[in-house]
Every structure is written in structure tokens, then in C-alpha cells.
Design a protein around this nucleic acid. Structure first.
Length: 227
DNA sequence: AGCACA
């Protein structure tokens, strides 16, 4: 089926994702990246053999999904251009809300138990209990496959249009308390650093401006800088 | 390439 033939759906299907990224981080990053289009109800990603490198993001509105599919097509995410379509099926969380949910009788494979074990062993101590993180604002988007930086007072901004000036960024970021300065260099277009007085203030600005678009093609991608 | 959620 041509991807154009898939009828609109409030869930989008994403493929060509970087398979090296850990599942929970991937989900948080997708949440951050797609929140700009609307309210996200659920993000699903599995690392099973068939399903790695793919994810589903469900929005509260179909229009949000449509915008996401159009605007984020080929967006470089963890160094790979993401490919987006509408999902083929209605998300379980939607079906449940509508009362039309019914259990699938597909062969429930134990692949996922294997997956669970593997992720637990490769990640010793993320002792936050079972991740009931739906609807909770996620930790920072970490764009380049690096280990996530702990919060600090310096923000790293990516995906800026090359015409961006430090004045423009200052206008945006100085609205938030603790703003100190913008640092940019001609030598590296598309990125900038923004310094705040402390990590709480930088976090507030990050939350507020994550995904902010200077042009429709340039949702800004904000993470904590490496120091 | 690959369309699931327990």
C-alpha cells in the first residue's frame, strides 16, 4: 500500500529510528520532539526483533498527527532521517477510551521478556519503578545518541535555521529568569549555547522552548550542554 | 525493512 493511501489516524508510525538508542530514552525523546504538535497520549516503542527501529506516537487530535507527519518527515533524529506515516491501526489507548478495545489473539511471544531482561542488565540502576510515565513531562531530549547530560546551567540548541542570529535567540530566551547570554559561532551554523544562572532556570527555559520553531522546518532541539 | 500496545 502506498503510504499516501493510509487513512489519517491520530497515531503516527515512525520508522528508520536509530536502533542503538535505549527504549526509554527513545520514548522520552520522541515525546519531547512531538509535543510541539499537540497533546501526546501515548508513545510506544518495542525492541523486539520485528519492531526495533520503529515507534508509535498517539496524539489527542488527528490534525496534530497530520502536521507531525508532514513537518517532521526526514527529520534527522539521532543521526537518522525519520520516516513518518499514519499508523495502520487504531491505538489501544484510543480503543479503550472509546470502549471498542478487544484483546488481540496474536501469538504473544516471549521475545519481550527476553528484551526486558536484556535492558535490565545493560542498565543497572534506573530505579524509578515501572515507568508509569504517560503524560508526565519527560527529561531532556538528547539528540545525538550521547548519554544524556545531567541538568546544568548551559543549554545546547540544535536544528536552528542558519540565518538565526544571537539577537533572535536572546529575544526568545531572555523571557526566562536567570538568562545570562547566548553563545554562537559562524563556524558552526545551526547550533548555539545559552547560559543561565543555574540548572533550574535553564530547565524551565528548555521546557518552555523545546520544539519552538523559528521557521516551520526548524523545531529547535534543546538539550543540556556537555561541560 | 520491519504496523504494536498485555
Amino acid at each position: 500500500m502506498l503510504t499516501a493511501d493510509i487513512p489519517p489516524n491520530q497515531s503516527i508510525y515512525i520508522k528508520n529510528l536509530n536502533e542503538k538508542v535505549k527504549k526509554e530514552e527513545l520514548k522520552r525523546s520522541l515525546y519531547c520532539l512531538f509535543s510541539q504538535f499537540g497533546r501526546i497520549l501515548d508513545v510506544v516503542a518495542l525492541k523486539t526483533h520485528k519492531l526495533r527501529g520503529q515507534a508509535w506516537v498517539t496524539f489527542s487530535e488527528v490534525t496534530a498527527a497530520s502536521n507531525a507527519v508532514r513537518q517532521m518527515q526526514n527529520f534527522p533524529f539521532y543521526d537518522k532521517p525519520m520516516r513518518l506515516q499514519y499508523a495502520k491501526e487504531k491505538a489501544d489507548c484510543i480503543a479503550k477510551a472509546e470502549g471498542t478495545f478487544e484483546q488481540k489473539d496474536k501469538k504473544r511471544k516471549q521475545e519481550e521478556k527476553v528484551e526486558r531482561k536484556r535492558e535490565e542488565t545493560q542498565r543497572p540502576n534506573t530505579a524509578n519503578g515501572p515507568s508509569a510515565n504517560n503524560g508526565v513531562p519527560p527529561p531532556p531530549f538528547q539528540p545525538n545518541g550521547q548519554e544524556a547530560m545531567p541538568p546544568n546551567n548551559l543549554l545546547f540548541i540544535q536544528n536552528l535555521p542558519h540565518e538565526t542570529t544571537s539577537i533572535m535567540l536572546q529575544l526568545l530566551f531572555e523571557q526566562y529568569p536567570g538568562f545570562k547570554e547566548i553563545r554562537m559561532t559562524e563556524a558552526k551554523p545551526g547550533i548555539a549555547f545559552v547560559e543561565f544562572a543555574d540548572d533550574v532556570q535553564s530547565s524551565m527555559a528548555m521546557q518552555a522552548l523545546q520544539g519552538f520553531k523559528i521557521t516551520p522546518q526548524n523545531p529547535m532541539v534543546i538539550s543540556f550542554a556537555k561541560k
